[in-house]
Design a protein around this nucleic acid. Structure first.
Lengths: 189, 189
DNA sequence: GGGGAATCTTGTCAGCGACTAGATCGACCC
DNA sequence: GGGTCGATCTAGTCGCTGACAAGATTCCCC
């Protein structure tokens, strides 16, 4: 199915998304060019338009894929909120390209239904983690506040890590460093 | 000095930066075009190159200005860490264009000396806030951990707010919502 | 008032996103 | 087994952009 020989590519859509991930990981979303992706896939410069319409269309597909992956990653981490938080950071580092697009709504169509649905799945994973929080660590009667604080701290850590803004002393293991940060938020009081 | 009539503009550098802020606030950094900025300032398309060299050069100047403004904003908030955190979020919302560039190192030259110096000033403001934390709210012997957690939570909240990712229920006052989130981190234990 | 440097203009080039029209292929149906 | 129709891809074009080069204008300082 990956013949890539004849007139038809075989799985151009997937090839373009994969190439986009590679380019974004190397040089950021700003360096993305549909013509370059087409070149990498060995097709003409106008071929991508058929699958994604335009550049925001391609990034919309990437963002939806990202939110789906994120929801899956957090669910797989087990019900525990700390572990879901670590998984969030781990996802950002391992799927840097997806993550960098997902929270940049000026790059894609955030109101696309497939994005909304995937985003909702990720939100549910977060809420279920908060619900599983032992009472002595949760804020009585304000699970939404807990969720917002937890989301903020892991999202901030992940963003700063990816931006290379953190000092070297933090180390080179994002999971370990994230765990220490998250622990501070939900220490028993 | 703002004649803007003759052959010389008068203060083109400042005019270009101001126009850049406006464009980024309206449509994000991706929509930025040097030629458009030149048009807005009423000069030829090649005039910006003299002041900034190239596009990353212009964004480097914007980022440096941003880190300086951030350092000033946090210092002005008083020594208290909670207020410095609120000021951080407030800065992100009020100077959205600067903030959106500052933490996107693929857009500019983060190793430029004027950026490094301004960034260092902002870091010092954060550290002084952590140092002023009352003992019952600080982690004994780990001020760097406190700083990282505080930075993460305010940065994450600000980023999510700007991305429009937060649910409506959070409200429309970023300062108030940020205060509630920050309180959760440094509650006495 | 003269000279050198800073500032700005005009002209050019390749690359990009988007659009159009047309070529090729594959799957299905009779 | 042949025809048809839609999906996929190509080729060509347009206006826009960033970057560069060469030259014009103006400011500043001696």
């Amino acid at each position: 199915m990956t013949g890539a020989r004849g007139y038809h590519h075989g799985d151009l859509r997937r090839a373009l998304l994969a190439a986009a991930v590679q380019v974004i990981e190397e040089s950021g979303p700003g360096a993305l060019s549909l013509r370059d992706l087409a070149r990498r896939a060995g097709v003409s410069h106008a071929a991508p338009a058929h699958h994604f319409g335009d550049k925001p269309g391609l990034l919309t597909a990437l963002a939806a894929e990202g939110f789906d992956l994120l929801a899956e990653t957090m669910s797989d981490a087990g019900g525990e909120l700390h572990e879901a938080g670590v998984a969030y950071v781990d996802f950002a580092v391992r799927h840097r390209a997806h993550f960098e697009v997902m929270f940049r709504p000026d790059l894609y169509r955030a109101d696309a239904p497939e994005v909304q649905a995937a985003r909702e799945r990720a939100g549910a994973a977060l809420r279920s983690g908060v619900a599983a929080l032992p009472p002595e660590r949760a804020s009585a009667g304000d699970p939404q506040g807990d969720a917002l604080a937890a989301w903020s701290i892991v999202h901030g850590f992940a963003t700063l890590w990816l931006a290379g803004a953190l000092p070297e002393r933090v180390g080179d293991d994002p999971r370990e460093a994230a765990r220490a940060v998250i622990r501070r938020l939900f220490a028993a009081r």
